[in-house]
Each structure stands twice: as structure tokens, then as C-alpha cells.
Simulated scan of single mutants.
Amino acid sequence: MTDTRLTDTGPAAAPPAPSTPAPVRRPRISARSRRDFWVFLALALPNLVLIAVFTYRPLFANIQYSFLDWTLGSPTARQIGLENYAMFFGSEDAPRVLGTTAVFTVFTVGLSMVLGLAVALALNAKVPGTTFARSAVFAPYVLSGVGVGLVWMFIFDPGYGLLAWVLRGLGASSPEWFNDPQLALAMVIIVYVWKNLGYCAVVYLAGLQSLPKDVMEAAALDGAGPTRRFLSMGLPLLSPTTFFLLITTILSSLQAFDLIRIMTPLGNGTSTLIYEAYLQAFGAYNRAGYSAAISVVLFLILLVVTVVQVRYVEKKVHYS
């Protein structure tokens, strides 16, 4: 006898059979996506090849050379491991070179950004002649460093230079800019700041012109003066521009070479890391392996500075 169980609505329903999941279909790549990929590859591949050949290949080759005892021009080299690095950091030149690099970078970056912001504020005024003034301020940045160095060598020359002539007219004598190491470094810093001031000014000018006018006008209606508006609102809103300039100017200053080479060929008080590497490889020493080690030290400093700025400094940037 069959037992039929009843519920309020009738016989109990049988449990449903487990359903088989539908096969997942992989999305098909459309013809347009394939075409876009090939266009991207055609445009990006030549640049990637050039970067790999002319940037990364020399970088890794330089790291390899830093482990060699190699005289420039010699057909043979000897593996010495980390001796070049130990020789550099254990020498008396390391504190001098690192200190000169730090002083040069701090002063050139600081003065370029502070003076560039001041010039940008002046150029942002709506007065006649600002277009010509902007072009004149930016012009030195695009000039050749060699030409700029030669002109300023004539200006600073203590015998027949323009500055010496002005000082003699005032009853004073010209300092020995090229013989005194401290004055030589100050001279190169002055010229470098003069040459790169226009870059910072133009970038800051673009940032000033992009500030939200409604916010600044609202602050003016609340009674805030121009100085307070700039310090309390304008300067924080310029933090992305400041952050960008901080990275680019530090990297540029650490790699400054042409002005130092032209104005102080022997590196009298102006031997930064990059110039010391040049002197060791192409000067009287011809120590290519030792020079490569100094270049690797400079690369590591650049890498650390960039990572620290992106990792920590960018947190304080106020993006609108």
C-alpha cells in the first residue's frame, strides 16, 4: 500500500533536480579591439625599443662596469666586486663630493622655486607688457648651457669682466670667483638659478591662472586681503604645481653638468657627483670602472629621492 502524504495544499512536491550551471562563455575580442591593439603597438613599440636601447641598456651596462677594474680604452678589465664602491666611500673625496652635490641641489632648487613663484606673481598681473616679460623670463631656459656659461664667464672674470668693471666704478675690487672654491660654487649656483628661473616661473604662472576664481572672490568678499588670500588659499591650491616642480628641479639639479663643465673645467669646489664621475672617466685618471660606480651612486640617490617624494610628499598635496 502506497503511503501518500498530504499537505494543506495537496501532495508533497518532490525536491527539484539540481540544475547544471550554464557554461561560461568567454567574451570574444571584437575586430575593433584588435585593431586598436595593433595601432597602439605600432605607435608604442618604436618608443619602447628606443627607451630599452638608449636608456635601460646603458644603465645595466654601467652597473656591470662598476664591478670592474677598467681603465678607459684598455681592451681588458678585471672583476673586483664592490671595491670601487668601497674605494669611493672610503676616500676623502666622498664627503666633499656629496656635500657639494647637496649644497648645489638645495640652493638651486630652493632659489629657483621661491624666485620663480615671486616672478610668476608679478607676471600674473594684468598690466601692459606682460607677454613680452613672460617671453624674456623664459628665454634663458631654452638657451644652450654652453653659451650661457661662456657669457657668464665673461661677466664674472675678475680682470676684464663686466662685473669687475662695475665694481671698479664703485671703488671696489672684484672677488676671485674662479680661484676660491666657495666663490666658484656660488658663481655656478647663481648662473644655474638664472637659467632655470623661467621654467619655474612659467609653471607657477600656469598654476596661478588655473586657481578657482569663485573661491578667491568669495574670500575677498569675506574681507581677506591679497596676502592672506594667497597664503591661506592660493598657496595650498598650488601644492600640485609645487610638488611637480620639486621633483623635476631636484632631478635636474642633481644632473647639472654643462654649466659646471664650462665655467669650472677643473671642478674647483664644484665637483658634484655627475661631474666627479666625468673627471674620473675622462680626466687625468681614466678610471672607467670607478666612474661607473659613482654614476650608480647618483642613480640610487635619484631613485630614492623620487620614491620618497612620490610616497610621502604627495600625501600633503591638495588636489582639487
Score class of each variant (00 low, 15 high):
Ala184Cys: 10
Phe178Pro: 02
Ala61Gln: 12
Ser210Val: 08
Ala293Trp: 09
Thr241Asp: 08
Phe178Asn: 00
Ser30Cys: 06
Ala281His: 02
Val148Ala: 06
Phe230Glu: 04
Pro75Val: 05
Ile80Asp: 01
Arg34Pro: 02
Thr105Trp: 04
Val109Ser: 05
Ser291Gly: 13
Met1Glu: 06
Gly169Leu: 13
Tyr192Pro: 02
Met233Cys: 06
Val308Cys: 07
Met216Trp: 08
Leu279Asp: 02
Arg287Gly: 02
Leu111Cys: 11
Leu298Gln: 13
Ala206Met: 10
Gln280His: 07
Leu45Tyr: 06
Ala125Glu: 14
Pro16Lys: 07
Leu170Cys: 10
Arg34Lys: 12
Tyr141Cys: 03
Arg228Ala: 15
Val305Pro: 00
Asn124Ile: 00
Asp157Ser: 13
Ser174Trp: 09
Ala120Gly: 05
Ala220Ile: 03
Gly267Trp: 10
Pro11Met: 09
Leu115Gly: 09
Ala14Arg: 12
Thr272Trp: 00
Pro11Thr: 14
Leu50Ala: 14
Leu259Tyr: 11
Leu302Glu: 11
Val166Ser: 08
Tyr141Asn: 09
Leu41Asp: 00
Pro175Asn: 07
Ser253Ala: 15
Leu150Gln: 10
Arg57Pro: 01
Val166Arg: 03
Leu231Pro: 02
Gln64Leu: 00
Thr71His: 10
Leu185Met: 15
Thr20Tyr: 01
Phe243Val: 06
Ser144Ala: 11
Phe156Leu: 12
Gly90Cys: 06
Asp8Thr: 06
Ser74Asn: 11
Leu183Asp: 08
Ser320Asp: 11
Thr130Gly: 01
Ala256Phe: 14
Phe89Gly: 03
Ala201Thr: 04
Arg311His: 06
Leu279Ile: 04
Leu150Lys: 00
Gly145Tyr: 10
Trp70His: 14
Pro15Arg: 11
